[in-house]
Amino acid sequence: MAALTNASSTKKKTFNQKMQGYKLFLLVLPFLVLIFLFAYYPLYGWIYAFYDYRAPLKLEQCQFVGFKWFSTLFTNATQLKQLGNALINTFAMSGLGILTSVLPVAFAIFLTEIKSARYKKFVQTMTTLPNFISWVLVYSLAYSLFTNSGFFNKLFMNLGWIEEPIKFLDSDNHVWLMMCLWGIWKGLGWGAIMYLAAISGIDQSLYEAARVDGANRFQLMRHVTLPGILPTYFVLLLLSIANILSNGMEQYYVFQNAFNREHIQVLDLYVYNIAMGSSHSMSLATAIGIMKSLVSVTLLAVVNGLSKAFRGETIV
């Protein structure tokens, strides 16, 4: 609508209005430059994927290798195995994340059923707190609670359940599960807020009407509250599918050690490790990054298209 009126009035624009338009543009120009520098200009760095780049040298001094790094990924057996391993971890973490994405929904629905406003507020405040601390601090808490002399080993030993301390952190057992649980600990309360907002937006007359029809509390939860927040859930679900390759690396970086590397190295962390680790394979890391970016953008487009087809609304 706005575009139409703009277009029809373009010709009538006076000189003054035009100047005003340029002036406004000049005011935002510095910020547009920042956007260009930090979002668009890095794309030029994709060129490193086509060179054999060695850290201190300039790009011109390095050899142009074309698609060598991309083909290495798929032909070199060790490379393929490492990448496959990173992908499995990535899908495992994202998959667990998607499976557990119903938890905030349940959390919100059940929290709404608590009648004491004060208790509700208390729970909400306390359970969203972990979302606002860094992963480094989460690691510090985990370290404090789970080392040999930490809370849990002490507790279990005092209770006589175990003789020797269990190595929770320096171990390759249940890495996926533990990472997922930390994610839930940090994000569940916060994740529920979005749904609590959606619930408070449900038309109260729906509850009244259902109650007049004789619905009990559980039927209200099932047939009024749940359908009321499903649209929000689907949008978030679609977004998490689009982000399936992006777990971020911070959580996994702080928790990684020599013991659990095989199961904790998600794609983002793998890219970091091969670029900044001992091998310094910047070019290979860039090549993997490019493929990840392309897949992610494609996924987003597909998911957006699906959303448009089924909901009549795009998500981005």
Binding site: I35, Y40, G45, W46, D268, Y272, A275, T286, G289, S293
Partner: peptide, 21 residues
């Protein structure tokens, strides 16, 4: 220009190109 800005939320050059930048 608004789109020029918004669209940057949906792509990322990756950590190495950003590091180089």
């Amino acid at each position: 220009w608004y789109r020029f800005m918004i669209i940057t939320m949906y792509f990322n050059a990756g950590i190495i190109p950003v590091y180089m930048t």
